[in-house]
Design a protein around this nucleic acid. Sequence first.
DNA 1: CTTGCCCACTCGTCTATACGAGTAGGGCTG
DNA 2: CAGCCCTACTCGTATAGACGAGTGGGCAAG
Lengths: 261, 261
Amino acid sequence: MTSLPSLLGDLDPTSDRAVFRQIADQLREAIDRGRFKEGEKLPSEAELVEHYGVSRMTVRNSFSILQGEGLVAAEHGKGVFVRPRPPVRRLASDRFARRHREQGKAAFIVEADAAGSHPQVDSLEVKEEKASQDISTRLGSVRRVLARRRRYLLDGRPVEFATSYLPLDIARGTQIAEPNPGPGGIYARLEELGHHLDHFEEEIRARMPSPTEVKTLRLASGVPVIHLIRTAFDTEGRAVEVCDTVMAADAYVLNYQLPAT
Amino acid sequence: MTSLPSLLGDLDPTSDRAVFRQIADQLREAIDRGRFKEGEKLPSEAELVEHYGVSRMTVRNSFSILQGEGLVAAEHGKGVFVRPRPPVRRLASDRFARRHREQGKAAFIVEADAAGSHPQVDSLEVKEEKASQDISTRLGSVRRVLARRRRYLLDGRPVEFATSYLPLDIARGTQIAEPNPGPGGIYARLEELGHHLDHFEEEIRARMPSPTEVKTLRLASGVPVIHLIRTAFDTEGRAVEVCDTVMAADAYVLNYQLPAT
DNA sequence: CTTGCCCACTCGTCTATACGAGTAGGGCTG
DNA sequence: CAGCCCTACTCGTATAGACGAGTGGGCAAG
């Protein structure tokens, strides 16, 4: 039971580094070195209290640091575990290329299937609503919009939720206003309606999630979100859609290809 | 002094929501509603202890939640403050366009000057070293590389640090191996050396920073980093540079433009 | 053998207390 | 008047203890 010293070492009482930081440092290092592997259980609070001769709150304080770094996650009644890195979804910059729209299924489904995961789309909601200030600006001063909300899951885990906003004069009464927009998705429908897509602009931020986002994406603490806002422009230069997406940052890598023009 | 109730309300003892969460909720809401503005000081721990009738650790626990969300930052001896949103640097997807290389100064400097901020480049280091596995793969199995490290600051605040890796057979003995690579930066030099740039690939992740990154970028807790890895390809299809960049996420918005091909 | 309970172990929440250390402002001292 | 110090207020660190609640294994009863 007291084989911990071999893994963890001692505290340095002369150091001016706080005890709980020293403990966090040692645990972090042990994790980095692979002494504790992904998904593995760390020593319990009681064991660390025993090993270091400190109070329980001090140990908990150490754990909370590592949680904030996204390194570990506590599970009530079970223990504290090294957070496994989930499979990552790579978003290629050509993911909206016309050729990907030819097949019947939605991009997300096709791509996930190809990667061998089980995709799901969730909590679909399509409705007309008042445009927020920001959305209105991006779409060129529209009052009301059609909003399409949905959540994406990979192997049962929510990874992203997104809302598409479209001007009512474009979307109302079309298949875009239906829960299922048909083969090729709304971009295919937009082109059929004569709005030939010219280019997309994407705006990317990263930040910590709001409590709502934590719930919706079932995020562990210490996991940021990537906030992506994409605007689609047709060949006339009009913004025909704005898509606001929030992604679990630990589930994504974004790829872009830029010309060196 | 006890005008706090007007700002904060009471606890619900019947709720099964933990007290420290309820307090965090109330503070968060007050901040969201603008009752506490950016940079403003929140009530002190002692005041909240008094107001809610709880122990100090409970109040601190609430604060630590809000810190983890990046909403507030504690300053020793002063108080807990609503985190101001720093000015944001927008990275356009054409930032490497050839036309931007014509002028003498580095892209970062030019751009920051234009935005009215005071730019600085820091801790320059240029040296030859062994390529990591990852870098080696990206550059096409090179053993050793030239590494150019530097840190960028905006108005005195570190916002990003980056390392460029170049194959030795390209960079050794050229101005690229000098601390100051000359007008137009290393991309201009690469082109002069006959490596005409064709395109860039960028790979973007977001995650919580390592302790080292926290120090280097002086990050407040609750601020993620954006990790960007860019590979530059010449017209022969060879990877001629890999640039590994870590940015303070609260200081950046990335912009990309994608063709709808 | 199966069901269900109990118990030991885990983390979660909360209290009360103590001392240390950074900050800022008022007032004393030279 | 200038400079220093003292003090009150702030957050930081750490202890000790209590109870609650989720989990899982073992044992006992049916």
